[in-house]
Design a protein around this nucleic acid. Sequence first.
DNA 1: GTCTATACACCGATAGAC
DNA 2: GTCTATCGGTGTATAGAC
Lengths: 183, 183
Amino acid sequence: MHMSKEDAIAQFAKVFRKYGYEGATLTRLSKAAGLGKASLYHHFPRGKEEMAEAVLNYVNHCFQTLVLEPLQGPGKPAERIYRMSQNIREFYRVGQDPCLLSILTLGDAKDLFDAPVKRAFETWLDTLAGVLVEAGCKPAEAYRRAEDAIIQIQGVLVLSRSLDSTDTFERVITTLPDNLLKD
Amino acid sequence: MHMSKEDAIAQFAKVFRKYGYEGATLTRLSKAAGLGKASLYHHFPRGKEEMAEAVLNYVNHCFQTLVLEPLQGPGKPAERIYRMSQNIREFYRVGQDPCLLSILTLGDAKDLFDAPVKRAFETWLDTLAGVLVEAGCKPAEAYRRAEDAIIQIQGVLVLSRSLDSTDTFERVITTLPDNLLKD
DNA sequence: GTCTATACACCGATAGAC
DNA sequence: GTCTATCGGTGTATAGAC
């Protein structure tokens, strides 16, 4: 391989995010990896489905590092939430990248990946709500606010893509910590 | 045709929403319309792209009737916003239907439909902001709140689909009018 | 206006040379 | 480990009978 397997998977992620599961054809994946189609099967014997699994694991790993670990790490709750917000800005490239998880809820991919996608969102919800409880929120209120934050992020990704603008994404990310911690 | 052209287009809409533009194959569209593939070309000579255009027009028309007209119609701003919220609940079938506009921002469809999709969101934003101005908001604040409302709706559609639950959708729609009109 | 049959490109996947 | 060549299937689209 010209690039490492992890680099290839990172390139695959771009293809799956942009075209969705059905639109991520072996031709596109092959070009993204700089390998012939047949060569992909040496690294991913079960084909496209295995490539998508690898992408999902890779993205979950990035998400873990950039979003979840800052929330669980040291520092005051407010600082941790600020760190998460800044890293979310990076993770979604200022709203220019669609969320891979949400992409995998469409078409054939939904049936293949609904369990891990659901788990990923639940983990995010629980982790964020945990920090808010630590900051003094009652559990029910913390969970509601965590939901609202994730809704805001997913929503602004859709709107940014539709309007082809990063302004609203910036605004939402900037105001996210205060919205979570208000009162 | 067993069904009217409009009925067929409504069936097409389900296919495009569920599978995306690339995943909406002629075989699936053919089954949805109850017609052979070749027959589709009698009604939509330019093929799949023309079918997607028809779906977009149809959905925009439904959206106009259910969401925009209530906002522009008679009654106090608060009543109109409440009516919009209830109709949004219906329009997205309590969060069980993905937003067709957001679906068309992915893959090949993005290049084909980005202009009309952008226009649709801008119209929604402007109409909603107009009502908030009428309710006493300053224009900048009204626009910001309109953005937040649409972000919430798009976001909760993603989350509802990912968690396979309608609870959060119900909560967001219920609290939407108060959030828009608070203070 | 709908159908069967078909054209041709591309799909995911495999065989086998190197 | 990567390639070319190829498979069977399906994609979009068209021709022509009825």
